[in-house]
Structure formats: C-alpha cells, structure tokens
Design a protein around this nucleic acid. Structure first.
Lengths: 188, 188
DNA sequence: GGTATAGTTGACAGGTAAGACAGGTTAAAT
DNA sequence: ATTTAACCTGTCTTACCTGTCAACTATACC
C-alpha cells in the first residue's frame, strides 16, 4: 500500500463504508476534492481533504487518518512554555511542532499542515490579532483551530474569541485546562 | 536528496502518490517527458517537465517544485516602504505581494510561492537572522532569493550575507539600487 | 396511512491502467 | 573498493473507470 498521504476511491469508500461509485459521485459533484491520473483517470484524494470532508459531514474520522489531524503547531519564544506545552500535548496524543518565530510558524502552517495553532499571547513582538484575522480570512486555514494563551493579567478573553480564536486559556497556563481544551477542539 | 533539477521515477511517483511502474508507463506513453541514462536505462525527469505535466493534468504541484516566477514578497510594516517598494518592483516587471506581519509573510511563502523575499530589516519586532536561517535550512525554500534592507546605521552587510541573504541594500533605500539588485537576482 | 416523485446509492459487466512481485543491474553512498 | 539502496524489465493480478439499471430513501402530496 502506498504512503497514506493520498487515497484511492476504493480506500476512501472502505473508510466510510460506501460503494466506490458513491465516492466518485461525491468527487464529480465537487463535494470532495480530488485529482485525476492521466491514464485511466484514477482519482487520488489527499488525506487532509478527505478528513476535512469527513468532518464537514460529521462522519467519523478513522484513527489512522486522525493522526494527521492531531498536529499542533505551538508558537512561542519562551523555552519553558515550549517544553511544557510540547510534553503535555504529546502525552495527550498530539504531534507537536514548535516555532519560536512567527515567520517560521507561518511557513510551517503550510509545510506541516497542523490542525491547531496554539499561540502564546505573551510573546512581546507578536500581533496575535493580526494572525487570527489572517487565519480567518483565508480559506486554506478555515479548518485550523486557533487556541490562544492570553497574556498574563489579561482578563478579556472575549476579545480573542471575537478575533477568531476557538478557545482561550489564561496565563499562567493550567496544564489540565490546556489539555482539556485541545482535546475538545481536536475531538480526541 | 539530489539537486532538485531532475527527478527519478521513484521520486516522481512519491510526489503524485502512485507506483513507480506507473510513472514509467506515463513516460513510455509519451505523456511525461524524460531522458534515459546509458547504464541501466534509468529515467530522469526535468523538474520543469514534471511540473508542466502536473499542471496539464490538474494535479497538485508540490510547493518545493514550484517554478520560480517574478513574484516578490515584501515584508515590511512601514507603509512608506511598502508603497515605494511595491511601485518600484512592479515597474521593473515583478509581481509584488506585501505582508505587514511576519506570520502572514510565512504563510504567503507557501500560498504565493514568491521567487524572492524582500525583508525590511528595520522592522523592530523582526528577527531577520532567524528568518534567513530558516529559509536556508529548508529545501522548499532553496530556490527563493532573499534580499535584506539593512537597518538604518547598520554597516555590517557581511553579517546578512553570511546569514543567508543573497544581497543587501542599505537604508534609506536607493530606488535604483534596489531595482538593480532585484533584477540581477531574478535575471530579468 | 398510502402513494408518487426525485434524488441517491449499490450492483454488474467489460475494458484497461495501476500495483505487486521477482530477478537482475547500476547508481549512489560510505 | 565495498556496500546499500534504488531502478529497470517482464509478467501476472488487482482494482479502478465508465455506463446502465435497479433498489433504496426522503419528501411531498393525497
């Protein structure tokens, strides 16, 4: 079998318990994104697209595919937060990438395709609102969850939520609270 | 990994999620251009041919293979530089995207696939060295030129070049100098 | 409740590309 | 120079594609 970053129609069909013909119809109708091979016109479906499709339609996501959707990108320049966050998230089943710089985090959004971006709002040089705004304005990030660690002393969590965050945790971070919110958002 | 100008059948196969035998059949059928090595008859596919093939068949093009265009991504939070830079670059035949935030710039590296990143080193909250280091350490950006506008008063251009910049212009920016260096790097 | 209708899915068949496997060889890495 | 990993060819098997038709589901209507 191939490397699991693309699926054939048959594989996709088996994953959701339907006939392969049905999967092809979803593709033809534009509900499921796929591309075609030149020869016979075989379809190939990127796993991310497939998982997104399943989510959109409230269908169960197979665990072996969900791995790809348990990636969290942690943006913080604080080594303590990076270390603690990475450990906590990994223990709850996530794959974690850490970026200490926002440009790097931006490039990793495309390279690693995380399912969640965890922003450390304490980073002095960071304009978290701008980031949230950008995320919410671009369709390729529509399915990426955003979780913000509110800066110390900040009480107005509502602002973050309005700006596009899916959830907020207060600083200093309570480990259990963080893990719980991540699990909730990623449906682990 | 080799120099990314040519691909083997195996690499091409992995890129599009098929068996290498299939890639060979595409070549035999004349759908994909390739040449053969004398020894075993290994196929080598020029990246441009491969990308053209992918485009022709509406298949996704991996970002690290995207052909360099005349797109320039300008990273600056200074509206004056953004405006002047955009104008100067457009007049010399470039397509220009401007990002005022480094996270956004990072995401645009993948979304817009610029051939050059122009960094305003005057941005206070920017760690240009970290950005250059990241660019040079990741293969998908190997072909992206980096041009730095050195901060006012900074005389040590050498530092930037060592960090990975392809060229440096001093601040305040001389329009002609900027245009000349961009044209040189992009071979316009 | 029963029936008609539209829309969706599954089944089947014929054709064909794609994948798997094996044995041999070379290119590349060390 | 040696080892390792990858590629090539040929053959056989598997699985996907298209088209058509029947069966099922949901909804609306009587």
């Amino acid at each position: 079998m191939n490397e699991l970053h693309v699926l054939t129609t048959g594989e996709a069909a088996r994953y959701c318990g339907v006939n392969f013909r049905t999967v092809i119809r979803w593709i033809e109708r534009g509900q499921l994104k796929a591309y075609k091979l030149p020869g016979r016109g075989d379809h190939r479906i990127c796993v991310e697209d497939f998982v997104g499709f399943l989510r959109d339609n409230a269908m169960p996501v197979p665990s072996e595919l969900a791995v790809a959707s348990r990636k969290v990108l942690l943006l913080t320049s604080d080594p303590a937060i990076a270390g603690a966050g990475r450990q906590a998230l990994q223990q709850s089943g996530c794959e974690v990438d850490v970026a200490g710089d926002s440009f790097i985090a931006g490039t990793l959004m495309a390279a690693c395709k995380p399912a969640m971006l965890l922003i450390d709002g304490n980073m002095s040089q960071l304009n978290s609102f701008q980031i949230l705004d950008h995320l919410r304005s671009r369709s390729e990030f529509a399915n990426v969850h955003a979780l913000v660690v509110a800066p110390s002393g900040d009480q107005e969590q509502q602002r973050w939520l309005e700006a596009g965050a899916d959830a907020v945790v207060t600083s200093p971070v309570d480990r259990n609270e963080l893990v719980a919110k991540v699990k909730l958002l990623l449906e682990i």
